[in-house]
Design a protein around this nucleic acid. Structure first.
Lengths: 211, 211
DNA sequence: TTGCCGTAGTTGACACTGTCAACCAGTACT
DNA sequence: AGTACTGGTTGACAGTGTCAACTACGGCAA
């Protein structure tokens, strides 16, 4: 079970030609299903069936449904984090602009793969359920911290940076998720992405004004 | 099916002594289960069983599982909204203080009944799935708008108030939900409720500084 | 060679779920 | 007296996650 970490680590090297090991094929197909099916309706049996393997095969590797879903969330989240990192690095070095780029990437993530996002950052799985998920979540968080850190005036403690990072993440997460699930009343005229930018600017301004 | 609205309307009048009609008893027991069981694991059959009625009885009234869950969410959300209203009215008339009180009540809601909150404001049910839910959601939203409206300087349009209301809600919703599901890394030292207050103050300041 | 053991995978069963369809008891209305 | 509607039951069905026992097979030691 532990050596799967090796598999995901050498993941970038030999993709493509070589046949993926079964756990990876299962996860890949589950991610595909997750594009249209919410996680709670995803059937492990059907994934196994589509891969062409017995209904019990996934449980040989992952133990139970939750662990499997956690692995799926891990792989999916890793690629989302990578895309966000690219998006951030593509814009200028202006911290506020990078903050907006990060937020936009997050909105893009939640909009293009809402079920995956809900799985990773919802109650279904815990971060400790699978090492892949834990690693991906930490990686994504580090990106957040880096961007938010660059927005701070000098003299702000490391802990306070993390605090503010959590606030900004919560803001983006909340607006984007309420939006994607159509919980924002139609009496709200503004585009959620723009509301988010305005609110982020308010946070940014508050951070700089504190000193 | 439509006359259930009457039932929920006269809900405050004859509670207690009189025997509740079956749909209400089912919903009440589902809410009870929801205190410990996440919505996606809630079994309609078991609810029916515990009420002492056949496994199909709930479907006579609610049609399918989703509609039943929507009704449950509606009743639950209505009482949460009422509690929030009381909490807001209990503090002084200072708008910022009321904003904080509203946010605190929201945090209290999500902390005391996370599964109910997830059900109401998650993807499982849509607002239109049951009139009870729709009514409760609108009622709660009106409370939000009222509180946020009082925070605005003169001259802000109605639409902009709704925009800002959505932002503030998203902020509170996001931080509280990330927190309750333990998605915030332990490297964040601050209490989420306090982070929320600070962030809300930044929004508030931004609103007033605009003019 | 033989025997053994761990890994990867299969097969079959079990209890439980939501949903469909047919049925039945009243009760109100014509 | 008959009829239609409401509220509820019973029985079946396919699909689910999980448990347990079994098989195939490569490595390895005696």
């Amino acid at each position: 079970m532990e050596l799967m970490v090796d598999i995901v680590n050498r993941n970038g090297v030999d993709q493509g030609t070589e046949e993926l090991p079964l756990p990876r094929r299962l996860v890949a197909l589950a991610l595909e299903e997750l594009a249209t099916t919410p996680a709670e309706k995803l059937s492990v049996r059907r994934v196994a069936d589509r891969v062409g393997v017995s209904h019990q095969a996934p449980y040989v590797h992952f133990g139970d449904r939750r662990t499997f879903l956690a692995a799926v969330a891990g792989i999916g989240l890793a690629s989302a984090a990578e895309r966000a990192r690219e998006a951030v690095e593509q814009v200028s070095a202006d911290p506020r602009e990078r903050l907006h780029a990060l937020a936009d990437a997050y909105v893009d993530f939640i909009r293009s793969k809402p079920h995956l996002h809900d799985l990773a950052y919802g109650p279904t799985v815990a971060m400790g359920d699978h090492p892949w998920l834990q690693a991906a979540a930490i990686n994504y968080w580090r990106l957040h911290v880096g961007v938010v850190h660059a927005c701070q005036p000098p003299g702000v403690t490391e802990g306070e940076v993390h605090n503010r990072c959590a606030s900004a993440w919560g803001l983006v997460y909340g607006i984007a998720r309420l939006d994607i699930h159509h919980k924002i009343p139609r009496t709200v005229p503004g585009d959620p992405a723009l509301l988010m930018h305005a609110a982020l600017d308010a946070l940014y301004h508050g951070w700089r004004a504190d000193i």
